[in-house]
């Protein structure tokens, strides 16, 4: 099992931060020049208030992510979802995705682990879709901070069945291709397992 403390460090993390920081500086400067100092400082005040209200959630969010990472080890999640898991496997996969903490550095390596453990295209699709659309951590911490609960409930409710449906669709559409490529894939995952 890879050490999560080291894999959690993004290889391109600082590039992303640089872009966001650059956008903030450019937009702030433009706001000051175009709209004048009065509006600039009122926007700044509003932003700082928003940051203060978000802060407790961020602290709770990173604590939750850390706890879930430790309590939901990758190898166990992979074991729960075999290739012939049927609808139950798809539901479990979507649920696991919704509960999985952390960003892409957690989710995508885990799908590779799932695939290696025998999960099919349906299960991995349901898993990634659950992670992308229904991630509890992200919704509680970020989405609830920036949107009203009406909007969040509407979007989340509409997305509830989507992991299952996309998983089924992926199985139907790509089942033949997956069966044909299975032997090649098995050989590949054995070789690429240590990456």
């Amino acid at each position: 099992m890879p050490d999560l403390l080291t894999t959690a460090r993004r290889p391109k993390g600082d590039v992303g931060l640089l872009i966001v920081a650059l956008v903030a500086v450019v937009a702030g400067t433009a706001c000051y020049v175009v709209k004048g100092p009065e509006i600039f400082f009122s926007v700044l005040g509003g932003d700082l208030t928003l940051l203060l209200s978000i802060a407790p959630k961020v602290i709770g969010g990173v604590l939750l992510a850390g706890l879930l990472t430790v309590l939901l080890p990758q190898d166990k999640v992979a074991r729960w979802m075999g290739a012939r898991s049927g609808l139950r496997g798809l539901v479990l996969a979507g649920l696991a995705g919704a509960l999985l903490p952390g960003g892409p550095m957690m989710a995508f390596p885990l799908t590779v682990a799932l695939r290696g453990a025998g999960a099919d295209i349906g299960t991995t699709t349901a898993f990634l879709t659950g992670w992308a659309l229904l991630n509890l951590n992200r919704t509680l911490v970020w989405e609830m901070s920036f949107f009203g609960h009406d909007f969040v409930f509407l979007r989340y409710g509409l997305s509830l069945a989507v992991p299952l449906l996309l998983g089924l669709a992926a199985r139907l559409i790509f089942a033949a291709a997956a069966a044909a490529g299975k032997e090649a894939k098995n050989a590949q995952s054995e070789r690429g397992g240590g990456e």
């Binding site: 850390g66 990472t69 430790v70």
Partner: peptide, 9 residues
């Protein structure tokens, strides 16, 4: 888990 939380924060 606390260590992980700190890294993420």
């Amino acid at each position: 888990s606390l260590q992980l939380a700190l890294v993420q924060a």
